[in-house]
Design a protein around this nucleic acid. Structure first.
Lengths: 210, 210
DNA sequence: ACAGGATCTGACCGATCGGTCAACTAGCCT
DNA sequence: AGGCTAGTTGACCGATCGGTCAGATCCTGT
């Protein structure tokens, strides 16, 4: 049920050097739970049961439930910051905006569960450091994509791109196709739709339906 | 903080005829809480405190927390069913599809909090009757908008329309403009974006940005 | 063999959860 | 006045919450 991630795990962990494998498992389990049933509705006991550990063991690896959330979301927020900084650093051209779309899609596909978590629960988790940091990043992102003179439509398109991606890549697939598309099939379609929403200068007209 | 809705309240409630004013207040408060912090994170005590009543009083008006959720969401689901039935009944033309978009936008604006609640929390609330009913409606909606031969892009557009609207109309505005747009300013922009996503035959090319 | 650190666990804590219940109040009809 | 009903409340219940703590266990370096 749970798909843990093994980032080049060494056979012999060098005595407390890198994060423990157990910790990585717990983070992966916590992420799926936070994204699917929500942070508030996920109990430490719940995570422990899935992982096959006791609740005390979870609290040995993470100081608190909030600390677990922070460690779960931090890599995604770091990567989003990288993508955004790369975009705002360079002069804005059609090419850089299109490359931003590609960077952003890579981010979406890699961190879809993290995005879904902090997009749809930011309201209730306000005050937690990583959530507030993510919120500021979203504001910066909106300001970079939509200029001061942006129309209501363009601001709305940005919101649709963000909320639509978070929904479609996680919950939406439950409704649409039962079998989730592999990422390689998803990417070109995602690129088309995201480009329509975020890169208005290069809208490709589509043929009429059927 | 809370903005209750008073739908043509009679001065003298006809002795148990219509729903009580207190019940309507509680439903409105519960809706804002469910939509903003989530069903699981909203306690009956929380609702009672905002309303100025005791928790026991809330449980006098509603048999349980789940029953409260059902009564809160039912009007929205009923209306969504009306909009969908109207669309699938008629032969599909460009005109009917565009009118569906208008109907759907009316639905979005009137029931944005309800939509946000069951779109973003359906996973964790599975098993509750009204949520399952809403889920089936969404599947029917997807099947009606996207035909069997619909491309991945079109299915993705439908997901973006649904998730994007739920996000943009509730949480998104917190990030974008601090001051929420009045509905009359929002509607034309919403119509443009939703039409691009849901009515592919009538995409209006947009002028290049700035 | 031994020591020591890392890991894991059950018992336990106060707080809060959703929900039940008996009692109280206030209006309304006869 | 007396009874009926709707509305409201505090006391209380078992369950679960996040979190603490004192050990048990296991592995490794010496």
């Amino acid at each position: 049920m749970v798909v843990p991630i093994f980032p080049a795990s060494p056979v012999t962990p060098p005595a407390g050097g890198i994060r423990s494998q157990t910790g990585a498992d717990l983070r992966a389990i916590a992420l799926t739970q936070f994204a699917s049933v929500g942070f508030a509705a996920t109990s430490l006991q719940n995570i422990a049961d899935i992982a096959g550990f006791s609740k005390s063991s979870v609290l040995y690896h993470f100081a608190s439930k909030e600390a677990l959330l922070e460690q779960v979301l931090t890599p995604a927020i770091d990567q989003l910051e990288v993508v955004l900084d790369r975009f705002v650093t360079e002069p804005e051209t059609i090419a850089t905006r299109e490359r931003f779309v590609d960077d952003f899609i890579d981010f979406l596909l890699e961190f879809r569960l993290e995005l879904h978590t902090f997009i749809n629960q930011a309201q209730s988790l306000r005050g937690i450091a990583i959530i507030d940091r993510a919120g500021l990043l979203i504001v910066r992102l909106a300001a970079s994509i939509c200029h001061d003179d942006a129309s209501n439509e363009d601001r709305l398109r940005f919101g649709f791109a963000l909320g639509g991606a978070a929904y479609s890549l996680v919950a939406g697939m439950t409704f649409l196709g039962e079998a989730t598309l592999p990422d390689d099939d998803l990417r070109p379609a995602l690129r088309t739709v995201m480009t329509e929403l975020l890169a208005p200068v290069s809208v490709h007209p589509r043929p009429a339906h059927s």
